[in-house]
Each structure stands twice: as C-alpha cells, then as structure tokens.
Amino acid sequence: MNHSISLTVNGTRRDFVLDDPRVTLLDLVRERLHLTGTKKGCDRGQCGACTILVDGKRINSCLALAISHDGADILTIEGVARGDQLHPVQAAFIAHDGFQCGFCTPGQIMSAIGMMQEAQAGNDPERIRECMSGNLCRCGAYAGIVDAVLEAQAGADESSQRRSA
C-alpha cells in the first residue's frame, strides 16, 4: 500500500509517495533527496551522525519513520548556510578544528544548532559537553568541538544583546 506524505525540507515543500512504511527520515533525505550530508553511522540511535532538526528540534533521523512525520519541517546540514555564507556554527568548527575525518561533523553541527536553540547549556563548557553527548566523534576532536560551540554561543549571545540594545 502506498502512503503519500509531504515534508518541508530546508524550506522547500516536498511530496513523497512511500511504497514502504519502513523508510526512515535518514534514508528519505539521503536516498530520495540525495541530501547525503546527513550521515548513517550506527543506524541505531547511538552515534548522532544522523542528527537533523525536525520542527526545530534535534533528533536522530535513523530512529524516525518518515511516514510518521507527515507535515514536519526538516532542516538538514545542506539547509543551514545562506548561499556561500556559512552558518556561524559551521564557521566556528572550521576555526577551531572541530573535526578530523569529518564524518560526524554534519551531525555535530546540527546538534550544536539544536542545542543553542534549546538554550539549556549557555556558555558552560561542562553543560555543553553533557548536551552534546549524543554525538560521538571517533577521531576524538571533542576539544575543538567544545571550543567551536563556545565561540558560536558567544557570537549568538553578542548578536542577541545587540538586537536588544
């Protein structure tokens, strides 16, 4: 039985006909939309490489059935830059060497963007490490990742202060 769903992916509405309900959001964005920035690491919700934002919240796309998310708003790594202008979190990862091989990086960046929107960690490195614990980095670039997130958070705090001034 076919199921029709529609999703907004990186700002564009997309309609899909699923001939199989087993398709995850991860497989949908990678295999149907060829948005391969989102990575399949463990495919079991343990590594965070597949992190995307669904309705503004970071989740593991490998553990989310596409069919159950009919109508959702999806943001993947391909949707965070504005043209050639990198998202501040992307720029901070480059500035602080927040990666080595890069495989976990899209998930790390999406997770960091989601974390900053959750506004639970602030600029406390210990809280950032805790709030980013769902993203594993086998290269061990954690020190650079935390520094990158701290810088991005500081930049976000500064621009929100400017806006309120």
Binding site: G45, G48, T51, K57, I59, N60, G114, E118, S133, G134
Partner: peptide
C-alpha cells in the same frame, strides 16, 4: 537519560 536528541523525541 539517553542523549538530547533522544530526549527530544
């Protein structure tokens, strides 16, 4: 419990 991603879902 779990990770921030899992707690969101």
């Amino acid at each position: 419990g779990a990770s921030a991603q899992l707690r969101n879902a």
